[in-house]
Design a protein around this nucleic acid. Structure first.
Length: 412
RNA sequence: GAGGGUGUAGCUCAGCUGGCAGAGCACAAGGUUGUGGCCCUUGGGGUCGCGGGUUCAAGUCCCGUCACCCUCCCCA
């Protein structure tokens, strides 16, 4: 009988990794809440057209990475490849714009992209993200970036921040046309990948690592010359705000994002500690997307961060509670063991009742193996053993023992 | 979609020019009949990823296939 294995690109997250996962999510959640963002729990399945219209018809995500299928009702649906599209859809569909002011939302969960798995990349991966709808001021750009930075700092993750502005939708479109014709003239000098990029994603050519491409595009038209004064002013403000907040950044005029909907501000937090997949969190402004998806004209911006990649960078987890192990010395004291464990847990003490019967020696080995800090022997006269010092104390009754133990265990 | 690497015990791996499938760790029992870690003894464990071929003989050589890891592409 052959064994069933997990599907390529999918993973079980358990043990230390599960702890890291929770640490990342809970840290982010706390900061989202401190910034007064509200959670939105979004569906994993959406109409395919949502992603075609937002992420972009020509992007790799839509062209070849989406899990698309027909449900039993004949609907063409997709497992979501990213979170922003769903958030925008919900913002419109649930009429959140009618609440007035602006909306700040965060989400967390799985995303699906059919890609070749590699370090820090899976077909089911997990993101945390946040979106701000209806805020136009560069204050919102600055605050979003600051919030992401806070999360990374809180996780103890070192990155560099790169920022750029893509200008508004129209000026970017004009620039892309000019750039495309420039690249076409020189396509013989470009690498194979870049030749394909001319149609697909010409901005990306400027970011190519191949030396010959860099050379060929040295005097390419620059985006900043095509950007409106209004966009430039916004960008200047943003830089001013970041500086005032003590956030260091690198202006990277060639930074582009892979999704079509971005306008004006884009940013990435990057590390070079985890191999090729160095972008750990990224986002930007998308002022035309809400309208494009059928909502009212609404300025918006957001970011997403890959939990798996953050996990690779998390070095130390917060301290855990001391573990107390309860061992019935012989099976006659099993009930006593159950009772003691119950009382310890009610006091908020992390307690493992040894669930195997056998020699006391084997139970002690197990207590040691699972990292018990203290052992309580359940018997007629209960005893408390400190596993670090080896000291052991006998008690008249369980009550006294539990009181002493409650003093000794560390409760963070 | 393109390239490279690796598949042998639960885990990490060794196994030379083909000749009885191994080590360490882990697991179980014992070395104190109610006490862990260190040490010692003993023990259980394998269709050598899968399929085919060459050979008296294949973990080893050849062909195919699958999976995983890594890189490019793309992205978080």
């Amino acid at each position: 009988m052959s064994q069933v294995k997990k599907v390529r690109g999918f993973q079980d997250i358990y043990g230390e990794d599960a702890k890291k996962y929770r640490f990342v999510v809970e840290t982010a959640r706390k900061i989202f809440e401190d910034y007064n963002f509200s959670e939105i729990i979004l569906p994993y399945v959406e109409d395919v057209s949502l992603f075609v219209r937002s992420v972009g018809e020509e992007t790799d995500i839509v062209q070849k990475e989406m899990y698309v299928f027909e449900d039993r009702g004949g609907r063409k649906v997709a497992l979501r490849p990213e979170g922003t599209a769903s958030a925008v859809r919900a913002y419109i569909e649930e009429g959140l714009y009618a609440k007035g002011g602006y909306q700040k939302l965060f989400y967390e969960g799985a995303m699906f992209r059919y890609e070749r798995p590699q370090a820090g990349r899976y077909r089911q991966f997990h993101q945390i993200g946040a979106e701000i709808f209806g805020a136009n001021s560069p204050l919102s750009d600055a605050e979003l970036i600051k919030m992401v930075k806070d999360i990374l700092d809180q996780l103890g993750i070192q990155t560099r921040l790169e920022i750029n502005t893509l200008g508004d939708f129209e000026s970017r479109r004009r620039y892309i046309d000019v750039l495309r014709s420039f690249l076409k003239e020189r396509q013989d000098l470009l690498c194979e990948d870049c030749k394909r990029r001319i149609e697909r994603n010409p901005l990306r050519v400027l970011d190519c690592k191949v030396e010959s491409c860099r050379e060929a595009t040295k005097d390419a038209p620059v985006l900043i010359d095509y950007i409106s004064d209004q966009s430039l002013q916004r960008f200047e403000k943003l830089k001013e705000y970041l500086k005032a907040m003590g956030i260091s950044f690198i202006f990277n005029p060639r930074l582009v994002r892979g999704l079509d909907y971005y306008t004006d501000t884009v940013f990435e937090f990057i590390t070079d500690k985890i191999g090729a997949q160095g972008t750990v969190a990224a986002g930007g402004r998308y002022d035309t997307l809400v309208k494009q998806l059928g909502g009212p004209e609404t300025p918006a911006l957001g970011f997403a961060a890959g939990i798996e990649r953050l996990m690779l960078l998390v070095e130390k987890l917060p301290e855990e509670k001391d573990l107390v192990v309860v061992i019935p010395v012989v099976s006659e004291f099993n009930i006593e063991g159950l009772k003691i464990a119950d009382r310890l847990r009610k006091k908020g003490i992390k307690t493992e009742l040894i669930l195997k019967e056998g020699s006391l020696k084997s139970k002690m080995k197990l207590a040691n193996k699972i990292g018990g800090r203290f052992v309580v022997f359940a018997s007629e006269n209960p005893e408390l053993k400190d596993m670090e010092t080896g000291e052991q104390e006998k008690f008249e009754n369980a009550e006294d023992l539990i009181d002493v133990l409650a003093e000794k265990t560390v409760k963070p």
